[in-house]
Amino acid sequence: MDVKAIDPGLVIFDCDGVLVDSEPLAIRVLMETLADAGLTMDAEEAYERFLGRSLASITAILSEEFQVDLTHAALEKGRARLYEVFQAELKPIPGIIDALDRLSVPFCVASSSQPERIRLSLSVTGLLDRFEPDIFSATMVRKGKPAPDLFLHAAERMKVPPAECLVIEDSPAGVQAAKAAGMHVFAFTGGGHAGGQSHRETLRLLAPDHMFDEMARLPDMLSSSSTA
């Protein structure tokens, strides 16, 4: 497909599934947490309903649609388990270090995750120093993705107009949020969770500016128009 020539003033990266290959790990732990609460859900449905959403959004969906109210203790147990798994298994997205080294424009991270989870993910994978202090969480705004609040907050803090921002996202909710914010958006499909045709088709129907699955190609995609 033809790639539009985009010369952004700021690149806003999602974290999970874009900088770090965390989504398969997170969904695995979420399914275990739900099973402990009496709700059985397969991975495909969990990805479809929860990918890219904040913890507040996930708990609201569980309460409203499944009548499952996770207790504080259950959430804390799930968080502790997730952090253990991240420490042992989390890896950076292949090619992300090369991409960051070659980007010639400012960049930041804006994620649905809580600040401590974002920093843990970036620390474990050796990326924290590249982003600190430009790390923005859905906990900083009123509404998480697919609302545009988080990306607009990041653009404001980075002092770049929304129309000059490019968001790198892996989730439908994230693509919707970027478009609602009036930003360019590239859908990344190179994470461990993004290989399924259904996921890619869902992203394609949201009409991002481009879809790509090799993160190391990102700087070249910004410098000139090309064919993928």
Results as ranks from 00 to 15, higher is better:
residue 6 I to Q: 10
residue 9 G to L: 04
residue 9 G to D: 08
residue 11 V to R: 03
residue 13 F to D: 09
residue 19 L to Q: 04
residue 19 L to T: 08
residue 20 V to Q: 05
residue 24 P to W: 04
residue 24 P to Y: 09
residue 24 P to A: 09
residue 25 L to R: 00
residue 25 L to H: 10
residue 29 V to H: 08
residue 40 T to E: 14
residue 40 T to I: 05
residue 40 T to A: 14
residue 42 D to C: 12
residue 43 A to S: 15
residue 45 E to H: 06
residue 46 A to R: 07
residue 49 R to Q: 11
residue 56 A to C: 02
residue 56 A to L: 05
residue 57 S to E: 08
residue 60 A to M: 05
residue 61 I to G: 12
residue 61 I to Q: 07
residue 71 T to D: 14
residue 78 G to P: 10
residue 81 R to P: 05
residue 82 L to Y: 03
residue 85 V to I: 13
residue 86 F to R: 01
residue 87 Q to P: 00
residue 90 L to T: 09
residue 93 I to D: 01
residue 94 P to D: 11
residue 104 S to E: 15
residue 106 P to E: 10
residue 109 V to W: 03
residue 111 S to N: 09
residue 111 S to F: 13
residue 117 R to D: 13
residue 117 R to F: 01
residue 122 L to A: 05
residue 145 K to Y: 02
residue 147 A to K: 00
residue 147 A to G: 00
residue 149 D to T: 11
residue 155 A to H: 07
residue 157 R to C: 04
residue 159 K to N: 09
residue 165 C to V: 10
residue 169 E to F: 11
residue 169 E to G: 02
residue 171 S to M: 08
residue 171 S to G: 11
residue 177 A to T: 11
residue 181 A to T: 03
residue 184 H to G: 01
residue 188 F to V: 08
residue 188 F to P: 08
residue 190 G to S: 07
residue 196 G to E: 09
residue 207 A to S: 14
residue 208 P to K: 06
residue 208 P to F: 09
residue 213 D to Q: 13
residue 221 M to K: 14
residue 223 S to P: 00
residue 225 S to I: 01
